[in-house]
């Protein structure tokens, strides 16, 4: 058997999976999104993106995803840098601790946050005990951002750590040898070389935050309709699959735009580590 036909057989299971669960559903989304109840072609569903309510949800989703991504970068970069510089045998163990939450069910993790921050939650109980003013962040945008950052931070740390680890010690020594002080080594060598990793991280944090449904539903208490929640409602509550698909198409286009921008900087083998 030639290796080519062998390969063809080996990719069969996945090809079937991909066609059944990715390609066909996507075709359905396109079909529903571009038709109305009478199965006539229309771009009304897609154009309803400009409906002020939907537009507001889109803007809010982008805003929260953007803030979460920025916070993730700010939290992850120093940590990844410390891991790179520590060079001990423990450092990979510490990295595992950071990604440990990923091994738990995502919904459970969000519920855990709810028990921490709700009005009679763990944090407020402790604050009351010390007669300190209570916090009330549950059902606010802060809670949603908190949940997103907590949920997605490992996806920022890992590619960043990976990119920083790839920088050879002698590359840094070389820069110092040529007269660069530590600040210059960082700004001219370490930071530029870590950009592919950072961009991978940004993609992997920004897109899930943009499309999240569960986090905003649970920690936002249904008060904050993000675009994910709007689409979910069109499907599950108002049963308007056409409108839901139309808005999904718009969201997919936005994701493609984001990917198109970030792909320029992404090192292809960065993502492979995560996926």
């Amino acid at each position: 058997m030639s290796s080519k036909s062998k390969n063809r057989i080996l990719v069969m299971p996945y090809t079937i999976w991909m066609i059944g669960f990715i390609i066909i559903p996507l075709i359905f989304v396109v079909c529903y999104g571009l038709t109305n109840n009478n199965n006539a072609f229309t771009i009304e569903n897609v154009m309803s993106f400009f409906n002020p309510i939907h537009l507001k949800s889109f803007i809010k989703s982008f805003k929260l995803a953007f803030i979460s991504t920025i916070i993730c970068v700010i939290l992850a970069y120093p940590i990844a840098l410390i891991f790179r510089n520590s060079k001990t045998k423990q450092s990979s163990f510490i990295v595992y601790i950071f990604i440990l939450p990923m091994w738990m069910n995502g919904l459970l993790r969000i519920y855990a946050w709810l028990t921490l921050i709700e009005k009679r939650g763990v944090i407020n109980l402790i604050l009351s005990y010390f007669h300190l003013p209570n916090i009330s962040i549950v059902n606010t945008e802060i809670a949603i951002v908190l949940g997103m950052v907590y949920d997605l931070l490992p996806f920022m740390i890992l590619p960043l750590y990976n990119a920083l680890m790839k920088i050879n010690d002698d590359t840094i020594n070389g820069a110092r040898d040529l007269g660069a002080n530590e600040l210059q080594v960082f700004s001219k060598i370490i930071f530029p070389l870590s950009i592919p990793g950072m961009v991978s991280g940004i993609t992997m944090v920004f897109i899930p935050s943009l499309t999240t449904v569960a986090i905003s539903e649970m920690l936002g208490g249904g008060n904050f309709l993000l675009i994910g929640n709007v689409i979910e409602r069109e499907f599950l509550i108002t049963s308007n699959w056409h409108l839901g698909s139309g808005l999904s198409l718009v969201l997919i286009i936005f994701i493609f735009i984001v990917m198109g921008i970030t792909n320029k900087w992404t090192d292809k083998d960065e993502e492979a580590v995560i996926i």
Partner: peptide
Amino acid sequence: NTVFQKYALFQ
């Protein structure tokens, strides 16, 4: 100045 084993050029 130093010339390193694996060149250590800035990629």
